[in-house]
Computed example of a mutant assay.
Amino acid sequence: MLKPPSAAQVTPPPRRRPRVGRVLRRLVAVVIGVCALLGAVRLVVPATAGTADEPPGVRRQLTFLRAALDGGAGDQAQSLFPEGYFFLHALYGLSWVELGMRAPDGERSAALREARWALARLESPPGRAPFSADLTPPHGVFYRGWTNWLRGGTLALQPSARRDPAELRRFADDSAALAGALANYGELAGLPIDTPWTKRYAFGLLPIGDAFLAWSKTARPWMASTPSPPPATISWWWRTPLLALLLVIGVIPWLPVLVRRYGARRVRPEVTDESSGVATE
């Protein structure tokens, strides 16, 4: 008569391989968790080096942009929207101005050279092409304001004793032209015109955004000490909702795993006594 095998002779059933779906779900959960963690770190850690030091990586980005501009990126941007060529060179030059203003006085030559190069591009025929010379002031407040802002930046990068008098006169003349345009074409009788795209003053003659952005930046005292900037950090209460949202996003993919493990701990599986065949807890 055959005896039932003892518990020592019973071989456990082979372990099932994890299903592909489970592996994919955990992989997606890991990716979402890592992204949420990186977002929280970027939210808490300052993104720049403050207002005095040079932000990391900016010079490499500007080097890349200069190579792209030399390769025709301005013309490509022009084909996408009317001010593409102008904006790309203006922002490139102003970025160098900002970078140069953070450097000591004797280390601004590279920033000055690149800012002047961008200014020359703005004053070239391709830079002026979208702007009519019949506007008031010539080529419009948009063109004159942004160009004068960059010209003021090039002056600010130079020691006061080495600034070109002709360049200073040009800066003052353009500032006066912008002031005259705002004085002569201001908001008439308090009745601006709202269009589907922007709000315009002087019965539609002068866009509000172009006018006051350009004037506020031109009126900035480039040749004098600037006021202290606001703190570069964000208040903790502004970060709290985003941090909570990132925490929820990172935890949600893991909820099914946590629920299964918690349930497995509370409910003990039945254990079968091999000798008696009676299920016990």
Rank of each mutant, 00 (worst) to 15 (best):
E114S: 10
E114C: 07
A115D: 05
R116C: 07
W117I: 00
A118R: 06
L119H: 04
A120V: 06
R121D: 08
R121A: 11
P126A: 07
P126I: 05
G127A: 05
A129C: 08
A129P: 13
F131R: 09
A133I: 11
D134V: 03
D134T: 10
T136W: 05
T136H: 02
T136R: 06
P137C: 02
H139S: 05
G140V: 10
V141T: 09
F142A: 15
Y143H: 15
R144S: 06
R144L: 14
W146G: 02
T147L: 01
W149N: 06
G153M: 10
G153C: 08
G153V: 06
T154C: 03
L155T: 03
L157P: 07
Q158T: 08
P159L: 03
P159Y: 01
R163L: 04
R163K: 05
D164Q: 02
A166E: 14
A166Y: 09
A166C: 03
E167R: 01
L168D: 02
R170S: 00
F171N: 01
D173Q: 07
D173C: 01
D174M: 12
D174R: 09
D174A: 11
S175N: 04
A176H: 01
A176V: 04
A177E: 10
A177C: 02
A179D: 12
A179C: 02
G180Y: 09
A181V: 00
A181R: 02
L182F: 14
L182G: 08
L182I: 11
A183Y: 13
A183R: 11
A183C: 08
Y185A: 04
Y185K: 00
G186Q: 11
G186M: 13
G186R: 09
G186A: 14
E187I: 11
E187N: 12
L188T: 00
L188A: 13
A189G: 05
G190N: 09
G190C: 08
L191Y: 11
T195P: 14
T195D: 13
T195Y: 15
W197E: 14
W197A: 10
T198D: 11
K199E: 15
K199Q: 15
R200F: 14
R200G: 00
A202L: 10
G204E: 13
G204K: 12
L205D: 15
L205M: 15
L206V: 10
